[in-house]
């Protein structure tokens, strides 16, 4: 009866899962102070976004959604590379990577 279990999983479940993932990521970005954790939370949100894109693509039977997901993965990889480099550079310069204490852009 495996197939019946799968057949009970609807698009709505995927969307809810994506929403929960996005919420966890958003909470991490907003609440955590370590830049590294923030970066990881952003990755989580990007994946949640990917999941909704794929869900809608399946829902509408439109394969362009899958292509879009690959582009998002590529951009996320580039973002992670640049972001991590910045975090490392900031850590070397300041001796910490606390986002709250990095408020010089205010000036």
């Amino acid at each position: 009866m495996v197939s019946s279990i799968y057949s009970q999983i609807t698009y709505g479940h995927f969307l809810v899962l994506a929403g929960v993932l996005f919420g966890i990521g958003l909470a991490g970005v907003i609440l955590r102070r370590n830049a590294l954790i923030v970066m990881m939370s952003i990755e989580l949100m990007l994946n949640a976004a990917n999941m909704t894109i794929l869900t809608f693509a399946r829902m509408h039977g439109d394969m362009r959604g899958h292509a879009l997901a690959f582009i998002v993965i590529a951009v996320a990889a580039a973002e992670a590379a640049v972001g991590l480099a910045i975090v490392v550079a900031v850590y070397r310069a300041r001796g910490h990577a606390d986002v709250d204490r990095l408020s010089t852009l205010r000036h």
Binding site: L26, V29, I30, L31, R33, V99, D100, L102, S103, T104, L105, R106, H107
Partner: peptide, 14 residues
């Protein structure tokens, strides 16, 4: 509002 803390900016965005 303009205190340079990314958290707060993002919170407002949300």
């Amino acid at each position: 509002v303009q205190n340079g803390q990314v958290h707060r900016y993002l919170g407002l965005l949300v």
